[in-house]
């Protein structure tokens, strides 16, 4: 079984799958995957696949970027609560101006490959 690491997480994204770690003791799902349960401290985990639909919990549109994002502003980034449990951060495509995307809006996952890395992004649904 793949280890519960960022390497495994990104390898799964490459296959178009969002995989988290599920605590075998209390059932809490962790995304990104982690080896020690946030909730109960247990260390027995199994992989679980998550659906890509969720709702925006917090959002911004960035105008002053990181150097790797230069030339791509403005772009939206959000904390998204997935329907089947945990939250995760990701770019949200198709949003140009602040206010077009609001808390509570529904989004759906997109797997974006750039160079040799696939990242989890979202699109307004």
């Amino acid at each position: 079984m793949a280890e519960f690491t960022s390497k495994s997480y990104f390898d799964f994204l490459e296959e178009g799958r969002i995989m988290g770690s599920k605590c075998m003791s209390c059932g809490t799902v962790h995304l990104p995957p982690r080896p020690i349960c946030h909730d109960c401290g247990a260390t027995e985990m199994e992989w679980t696949e998550l659906g890509g639909e969720g709702v925006v919990q917090a959002v911004t549109v960035i105008n002053v970027p990181l150097s790797k994002m230069e030339g791509r502003c403005p772009y939206a980034v959000a904390v998204v609560k997935l329907d089947d449990c945990p939250s995760i951060s990701g770019l949200v495509h198709g949003v140009k101006e602040g206010g077009e995307l609001s808390i509570g809006d529904r989004v759906v996952a997109e797997f974006v490959k750039e160079g040799d890395k696939t990242t989890l992004c979202f699109r307004s649904s």
Binding site: I62, L66, L120
Partner: peptide, 23 residues
């Protein structure tokens, strides 16, 4: 890995917190 890698800047994180508090 999971925030900056996703595109968040440091001001962006606080802007997101503001959006949540406003809402």
């Amino acid at each position: 890995v999971y925030e900056v890698g996703a595109g968040f800047t440091f001001p962006g994180l606080f802007a997101a917190l503001a959006s949540a508090h406003f809402a």
